[in-house]
Amino acid sequence: MSATAVEQAGAVAGEARQQAGTALRDLQDRMREEADSQVQRLSGTLRQWADDLAGLAQNAPGDSPVRGVVAQASDGGHRAADYLDKNGVGGALTDVQAFARRRPGAFLGGAALAGLVVGRIAKAGKKGAQPSSGTHAQTHQSDEADEAASQSLGEVAPRPQLPPHPGV
């Protein structure tokens, strides 16, 4: 009887392993499909921006120094969109990993710079979301109200600094 129980336990464990493997493969497939979908959307957005920039460059005066820069940005956008269409997420990730191995300093510097840019954009977006229509007096009153509210909630106000004793 114990041999039958061991066999049944083994069969149950094997079935559980098989179902877990199937669930993992399904999850990986769904993640890959979602990533591919997002890359296609990104590629389409890049291509649209590049087309918009190309239109700006075409409508710019011929002697404008900005025209060349905008045209180069448009070409770069088209190349990036084409690259994403051709290589997808896997190709982009492989290329980034290869670059990081070849030039780790440049990769880390670029990552730090990208982090700073994203941080500045997020900070600017946060400031833009705050209401800016108010006078200094209104802001001061609001600060006083916030301080009063925090004190009424039981928060301890900071102690005032006393001047040093003259005899010390």
Rank of each mutant, 00 (worst) to 15 (best):
M1D: 01
S2N: 05
A5F: 00
Q8P: 00
G10L: 04
G10E: 00
A11R: 10
V12G: 00
V12F: 08
V12Y: 06
A13G: 02
G14K: 06
R17S: 05
Q18N: 07
Q19N: 13
A20M: 12
G21C: 06
G21P: 03
T22E: 12
A23K: 08
L24G: 01
L24W: 07
L24N: 06
R25H: 10
R25C: 05
D26Q: 10
Q28Y: 05
D29C: 02
R30N: 01
R30P: 01
A35H: 02
S37V: 01
Q38D: 06
Q40A: 14
S43M: 15
S43E: 15
S43D: 12
G44D: 15
T45A: 14
L46T: 04
R47C: 15
Q48T: 03
Q48L: 05
Q48Y: 00
A50S: 15
A50L: 05
A50G: 09
D52C: 03
D52W: 04
D52R: 10
L53T: 08
A57H: 03
A57G: 03
A60G: 02
P61F: 07
G62D: 14
S64V: 00
S64G: 03
S64L: 02
P65C: 03
V66P: 00
V66T: 10
R67H: 04
R67A: 06
G68Q: 07
G68P: 00
V69I: 12
V69S: 09
V70L: 11
A71V: 01
G77L: 06
G77I: 07
R79T: 15
R79K: 14
D82S: 14
L84T: 06
K86A: 11
G88W: 10
V89L: 09
A92M: 14
T94Y: 11
D95E: 15
D95C: 08
Q97D: 09
A98Y: 11
A98I: 07
A98V: 09
A100S: 14
F107W: 14
G109V: 09
G109H: 12
G109L: 15
G109K: 08
A111D: 12
A111H: 12
A112I: 11
A114H: 06
L116Q: 14
V118M: 12
G119Y: 06
G119M: 05
I121M: 08
I121R: 05
K123T: 10
G125S: 04
K126T: 10
K126D: 11
K127E: 12
A129S: 13
A129N: 07
Q130A: 15
Q130D: 13
Q130K: 14
S132K: 10
S133M: 02
S133D: 04
G134F: 00
T135V: 01
H136W: 04
A137I: 07
T139P: 00
H140S: 02
Q141Y: 02
S142C: 03
S142M: 07
S142V: 04
S142N: 06
E144Q: 13
A145W: 04
A145N: 13
A145F: 06
Q151L: 13
G154F: 03
E155C: 09
E155Q: 14
A157C: 04
R159F: 15
R159S: 15
P160T: 00
Q161G: 09
P163N: 01
P164F: 11
P164N: 11
P166F: 08
P166V: 03
V168W: 13
V168P: 03
